[in-house]
Design a protein around this nucleic acid. Sequence first.
DNA 1: GCCATATTCAACCAAACGGTTGACGATGGG
DNA 2: CCCATCGTCAACCGTTTGGTTGAATATGGC
Lengths: 126, 126
Amino acid sequence: MGGAGPNGLPMTDPLDHVFAALADRTRREILTMLLEDDMAVTDVAEPFEMSLAAISKHLGILTRAGLISQEKRGRVKWCKLEPDALRDASIWMQSFGQFEAVNLDAFERFLEAEIDGPSGGSDRAD
Amino acid sequence: MGGAGPNGLPMTDPLDHVFAALADRTRREILTMLLEDDMAVTDVAEPFEMSLAAISKHLGILTRAGLISQEKRGRVKWCKLEPDALRDASIWMQSFGQFEAVNLDAFERFLEAEIDGPSGGSDRAD
DNA sequence: GCCATATTCAACCAAACGGTTGACGATGGG
DNA sequence: CCCATCGTCAACCGTTTGGTTGAATATGGC
């Protein structure tokens, strides 16, 4: 698969794709939209002022990075957030993580409260 | 440079620079090296198989992203890791890692409290 | 003062990026 | 069957990226 560089390390790290995908505001906004719900390509494109083809390319980049998945049902292609790839990148970043400022314990407590809490949560429109 | 887009949002988010800087294996390796110790430019360049000028450019990109700082002492320029910029990106990513269909308003309140809170606000060294 | 060292600058290059447009293949509805 | 809709493909364009080289600019040692 991936060729190996002189160090024995792969020449293209999956992190390359993840971070490169995140380095664009449009794509980050798309991810934020998909956080709320799965969406069709056309609906993803709607709020943006660029062509459908451009959004299609962005979605391809996000897919290649593993940040989303796309499933075609009928003539509609549904886009779905895939948080696992982000988790890998997040883990990489935490190795730098002095993170004095952010209290990760508090963050985890917050997450648990949110997920267990308010409305039992997942009412996805499938 | 920082014009405003049609949404009133800035056209170039600081996160653009951070993620773009991280999207290159060489730069990630440089950050890893700096994790252990501050280093001079020449020493940073030594293990790589590219020119010193190329490394100098990479360091410029990392500096522009706020991921490192450079201080010239004598004729040597010392490079130092700046974890704060990474913290912001990490916080952004965490919103995707663990959330399913969670209350984003509460998440934003959490972030504001965390960022404004513990150390009297974000004092970025630009 | 002179020379070696440390780092950047400037010009150049190929490749990738982000966007456009227009044509094209699927698919589903009346 | 016909046609509108969904989405991608292909070609093109200007800009950015990641690298090279060679010259230039500090700075420090002797």
